[in-house]
Design a binder for these strands. Structure first.
Lengths: 139, 139
DNA sequence: TTATTATTTAACTACATAGCTATATAGTCA
DNA sequence: TGACTATATAGCTATGTAGTTAAATAATAA
């Protein structure tokens, strides 16, 4: 399974060396758009709910415990950016993850955050070594 | 070098299995905040400029070709979220990447976007197979 | 046809924030 | 001390967007 994911890592690193270092402003906008799609808790919740496979809008509304219109709007955005695919069947519309890469992104962030909070906890646990440089996460 | 990065991948995947599936709403907010920090072209530009090591605010202002106040504000945000570290030396303040993970994130997104645009190009090049489901990226 | 259900969309409000200008703060040197 | 430089911040405007409500659209069934 880990083997399976290797190609992704390899190609991603190649892309980085070939393009990331010379990213022009236009490309940065696309990358920022991609990250912005993941910068909303409800969208992450939807994405997380799609881990186990496709769901229709009603199911996702239930799973996310919010309004159906709101879920629909977020799904539209996710589809526009190519993160999910849309398939109408009967009166329902089923969405599924189009790009499993997002889970690797989320995993990396989770790992980093865990490390970050762990570091903070250690700093706070060590008297006299409290960090004054990094303020608390806003809000 | 690829070997070196392996531990990161492994631990990230472990974190995913241990925590991502049961992310509560509070955790989702933190993850979203992290992504939001990367959801701004200028911040990505700053991060990219820090690839080769530390820079002070003046240098970053020059490299990003924008106002000093704006760079400072973005750097403050990046520091708050733990992506960069701040170190005052003399009258200057030097920033450096605190979390190399972000480059792996950017690389993944770049790879995915390249794939996405490549797919779109192929779709547009194949008459009669044009996709109607996914609209163009907004704006 | 009408009724029903599922989804999308339009219109709106409230809020967050990017970028600007001007000012404040802090360190260095005379 | 004052002058100078580097950085941070306050106040402001404009823009984007999350969430809500209500209406529109689309597919199915009676």
């Amino acid at each position: 399974m880990l083997k399976l994911r290797w190609n992704y890592v390899h190609s991603a690193i190649e892309v980085f060396f070939s393009s990331m270092k010379i990213l022009d402003d236009r490309a940065l906008i696309h990358v920022a758009d991609y990250f912005r799609a993941l910068a909303e808790p409800l969208r992450l919740k939807i994405i997380n709910a799609l881990r186990d496979g496709e769901h229709n809008v009603g199911e996702l509304t239930e799973l996310c415990a919010c309004s159906q219109a709101n879920v629909s709007k977020h799904l539209t955005l996710l589809a526009q950016i190519g993160l999910v695919t849309r398939e109408a069947r009967g009166t329902s519309v089923y969405y599924r993850i189009a790009d499993p890469t997002i889970y690797r992104l989320c995993d990396l962030v989770c790992g980093q955050l865990a490390q970050h909070f762990s570091d903070q906890a250690n700093l706070h646990a060590a008297p006299g070594k409290r960090s004054t440089k990094i303020k608390k996460l806003k809000k």
